[in-house]
Design a protein around this nucleic acid. Sequence first.
DNA 1: GTAACTGCAAACGCTTTGCACTCCC
DNA 2: GGGAGTGCAAAGCGTTTGCAGTTAC
Lengths: 142, 142
Amino acid sequence: MIKISTEELASIFKKHGLKLTTQRLAIYETLLKRKDHPTTENIYKSLINDYPTISLGTVYSTLHLFKDLGLIQELNFSDGNIRYDPNTKVHINLVCSKCGNITDYNNEKVKEVWQLIISDLKIKPKGQRIDLYYECEKCKRD
Amino acid sequence: MIKISTEELASIFKKHGLKLTTQRLAIYETLLKRKDHPTTENIYKSLINDYPTISLGTVYSTLHLFKDLGLIQELNFSDGNIRYDPNTKVHINLVCSKCGNITDYNNEKVKEVWQLIISDLKIKPKGQRIDLYYECEKCKRD
DNA sequence: GTAACTGCAAACGCTTTGCACTCCC
DNA sequence: GGGAGTGCAAAGCGTTTGCAGTTAC
């Protein structure tokens, strides 16, 4: 996980002529704090108590901005949910096919094989997404 | 790729008390014929000439049905497109991040590592999705 | 000061729903 | 013959858009 400090974030924004607003900072911190790959709605609800005037539109546009800057990854799922992951490195998303909950799984072998594939294909990768669907312990009990 | 014959398809449908209609057969054959992981709209447009009365609603419900039967995989992307893949086995989707075009890539090492991960995690996999984003040759030229 | 950003509300577009008609088994 | 499936049109709803007011720099 790439944890970017407020200073680094400010520098990235400045470089692109963008403003680091209270809302943008709050959204980024929420993304880092939550480990569950929240949806736009999740983030909005997380923030509405501390920032009563924040709008859903702002959360949408901010997440798009973060995606375009390469700070986060957007994960669209079959259940219609769009979830956001601040981890843009090669890793596996362990996704419960019932409740949709996601946990990250890091594995060295995966990274090695990924490098092999990239050199085999002779391509310049722009990103990746590796999902493993299963039924989580909580859903198994229900 | 699992290529299911009309007879096998009929048997699967019968087992579930479902009818194998002309439309369902045509949609399944279109999915197999096209190698580009078409969207709902793509499939609809592919069929409208040969089946002038087919409706978009039918294509939607049929694709959902196929997904529920495990015959195909639904791939939701950041650009808002939902694409369908009749290959449900472990493979890599090479996705162009510009035009969205997808080609399948089969690699033995990936399958081996996938097996390792599954035994490591001690889970029963329900499916997977492995995307590699890059810029395709066609988009590079433009 | 000013250009970028926010909040609000209206518009948009893909997907789902409801229902009468049709057709597979 | 009967119930599942289709086609059509309307409804639904997550997301985007437009714009006046606000804020970071």
